[in-house]
Amino acid sequence: MTDAHPVLKVEGISKSFGALKASDNVSLDLRPGEIHALIGPNGAGKSTLIKQISGSLRPDSGRIEVLGRDVTDLDTVARARLGLGRTFQISSLAMEFTVLQNVVLGALGARGRAFSFFRNVMKDKALLESAYRALERVGLQGEAQRRTADLSHGQRRQLEVAVALTLQPKLFLMDEPMAGLGASGSKALTGFLDQLRHEAPILLVEHDMDAVFALADRITVLVYGAVIATGTADEIRANAEVRRAYLGEEDAA
């Protein structure tokens, strides 16, 4: 893994909304096999950065590389096809679908051919196999036939991860997967992500500091749109500026 090319490389991304600098010359990379956590206080520009990496927002300047390829000008669909698997902070699942239909949709996207008009998609063996495998991995196989709208908040987060798994991405972009999970749920997901990093590296935005410090190989701290520090968990803990800007703030709150 030494000297490995980064799977994701963000170089000098800037994005402004009027006078607000949401991203201020941000650079970071994601190497094979690692979990790279992105933390920062509310309003630090984490979501804006994730949106630019996933392709739903265009940076004003800078460039983004996925697997050595410049994707700055590619849209969300093209980046997904290149292997970028994203989970959302605010669940974007199809609420009228069953749990199974949501994962089958992911498997269908991974196949890349949706223009088939006659076969019953819910009887497609290859799609179902991939879908059930993903559900089992997140522990939702028992909920396959339930309506997604009827799932608990935590189950929806699990389903978000399952849909991303069906894509067999080259890297994961996870926006607060632990939010609302509860202690046992977030512990289980922590264990799961710990294994998942060996399949594909994870850029993890997370507020749950226990999870971040347990999982992250490296941590990048974002404040007011700018990176104030990048390093291992220990380095970040020891960093005075980070303590002042972020961790201390949390303690005080």
């Binding site: 669909v77 096809r81 699942l93 996207g109 849909v163 894509l167």
Partner: peptide, 8 residues
């Protein structure tokens, strides 16, 4: 957004 994220 979900549909785009799965590459369609």
């Amino acid at each position: 957004e979900r549909v785009m994220t799965v590459g369609l």
